[in-house]
Amino acid sequence: MFTVIKPMRGPKFKNEVARYPGGENIKRCFACGTCTLSCPVSEAESNYSPRRVIHKILLGLKDEVLSSDEIWYCMTCYRCQVRCPQDVKYPEIMRVLRQMALEQGYVKSEFVDAMKEIEKVTQDIRRKILKRFIEKRESITEKDIREIISLSDKIQP
């Protein structure tokens, strides 16, 4: 499969991103991969790579980026931002992209609201799962672990 990189008409995607607060440093990226290696989401989803998302933005793959699921994965832990040697602010850029996706009609505002709600709920589920685990930590059995994990299975599609 080939990706054909076409010259952009109108303002270039990367410049568009860079104009938003938080997006300024995007072009400094030298693709070292620190962000991907810092990312807890990448650990769960090996196909998710912040480095690749940045690279796609730089390549101008606007449609692909703004319509992709990836821009909604970031859980804004800011580890990548702290460790990035070039001060590229990935979580900020994700915020910018989400904003753009909404503004430019890639998603509806209801979707964004739902995403916010989902994030809240996700955190809540996480908290509950952990709580269950921590409560039993003294006498935890394999059965307990399976039970706890099955909780997380339930929320899968």
């Binding site: 070292c32 991969g33 620190t34 962000c35 991907t36 290696l37 810092s38 990448s42 650990e43 090996s46 790579s49 480095r51 580890r79 460790r83 040697p85």
Partner: peptide, 26 residues
């Protein structure tokens, strides 16, 4: 692959390093 962090294994004091392989895997 620039390294993001080093994690020490408490027993062996070995150090775990996560990196991106040449074919793009972690």
């Amino acid at each position: 692959s620039r390294i993001s962090e080093i994690i020490e294994k408490p027993k062996t004091k070995n150090l775990a390093i996560k990196y991106i392989t040449p074919d793009g895997r972690i």
